[in-house]
Structures are given as C-alpha cells and as structure tokens.
Design a protein around this nucleic acid. Structure first.
Lengths: 119, 119
DNA sequence: CAGTATCCGGTTTGATACTG
DNA sequence: CAGTATCAAACCGGATACTG
C-alpha cells in the first residue's frame, strides 16, 4: 500500500522531468540558453560559441525556444540586418540550473578519471 | 580583451553542459535515473514505471547508463532469472539535480499558464 | 524474466546552395 | 547578416519473433 504511493510519487516526478527535457533536452537547447546567460547575442555569435552546431540546427532550436517563451528575438535596424537573442524571464530562471549542471559535468569528469584509474 | 575572457568562460561552461546532456540527455535517461532514485528496480519494474518506453529502448539506455557508471546491474539468482538495477554513487549524485529539474518543470507549467492567460 | 535479432518506416541532421 | 530550401545519409524507435 505504502509502496504504491511511493510508485505514484515516482511516476509523477518522472513525468515532470520528461516535460522539462522536452523543453530543454534537445541536443543544443541548454547550450544555447547557457550561451545567452552571458549576455545577449547575435545569431552568428551563438553559431561560433556553441561548438558543433550547424546553422540549420541553430535556427530551428532558436525558433522552438522562442515559441516556448524561453528566449526573445529582436531585430536590430543595422545594415546589413542584425538579430539579437536574449533570455526571457523564464529563460533566466534556468540560470541556476545551468550552473548546477555545468558544475556536475566538471565533477563528473573528475570522478570518472578516478574510477578509470582504479582499473 | 575582457570580453574575450568572458567568451572563453562561456564556451567552457557550454562544453561542460553539452557533456552532461550527452550522458543524461537521451530521451529516457533521466527518467530511468529518477525512477531508480526511489529504490532498486528490476527491468520489468522500470518498464512499467517509465511510461512510453519500449523494451528495446530500455535495454539500450540501461546499457549506456551502465557503461557511463551511472547505474549498476546485479543478477539475482532467482528462477526465472532476475536482474536488479541500482544507482552508483555517481548516479546518486544526480538526485538533487533531478529534484531541481522536476520542481522547475512544475513551476514552469504554472508560469506558462499565466503567460497564456495574458493573451 | 530479461533481454537480443531483424525488419522497416519515420525523423533528424549535415552539406551545400541560395535569398532578402 | 540571418536565415531558408533541398537532397541524401544516418540514426531512431516500434513491432514482432526469438533465446537462455
């Protein structure tokens, strides 16, 4: 009986996480958001700073992030035309999560090194 | 000059996050880890609790998670054979991140509702 | 029970060329 | 500059049948 409740709580949490990953779990989405944490950026800036992403992927991911209200797109009236991307309030609310993830990533790399050396 | 340093820091963090997402960003990986946060589980338990996953995907993801030292696989000597999966220390270290993500997911849903209503 | 093997359509993605 | 269009290759993932 108690076990069933536990399972329910588990499933509820899993669904919440699945939702989150749908939003930010694309191959590049968090990287893009992380990039914008350091200030507003243009399309070409992001293209340079997020290693490995192609132009096609970038524009696609940007579009989805905009749809989900994570980022905002502003057209600058420069010539030639420029576009600036910035985080919305919602996007900004991910900053702390991003920091935690990045920290974990670095810790993980160290931990892996230690485990490997034991072999 | 100062700007270049900033860009470097940015790119470093982005790479760290990209690594993390490579590890836990598969369609099901965090869900599986989240599921195991609630206790060791058998293959069939996970199959039931992670909604939507197929057997093929589950075994594939479990294998990758094991390779990356996130989970451990123990063969029980029951008949018929049973297999139990559990989190390693590394996997366990994700618990807090998972909680934060799940919380954000729920908060996000509320925020989106508010934004939508304004329209 | 806990998987593996095979088939197979659908989706994703990179490269390249092009546009306003 | 900031994208879009198009093609082909690679990969994903479901269904089903099979194994120890």
């Amino acid at each position: 009986m108690e076990n069933k409740l536990k399972t329910k709580a588990c499933e509820h949490k899993i669904r919440a996480i699945h939702d989150v990953m749908y939003l930010i779990g694309g191959k590049w989405k968090i990287s893009i958001i992380a990039c914008l944490c350091y200030g507003n950026k243009r399309y070409s800036d992001i293209l340079n700073e997020v290693e490995g992403i192609s132009g096609k992927m970038l524009s696609r991911e940007l579009k989805e992030l905009e749809m989900n209200k994570m980022i905002e797109r502003t057209i600058l009236d420069t010539k030639p035309i420029g576009v600036e991307y910035s985080l919305t309030e919602l996007g900004t609310s991910l900053k702390s999560i991003i920091d935690i993830l990045a920290d974990w990533g670095i810790t993980y790399r160290e931990a892996r090194k230690l485990i490997e050396e034991q072999i």
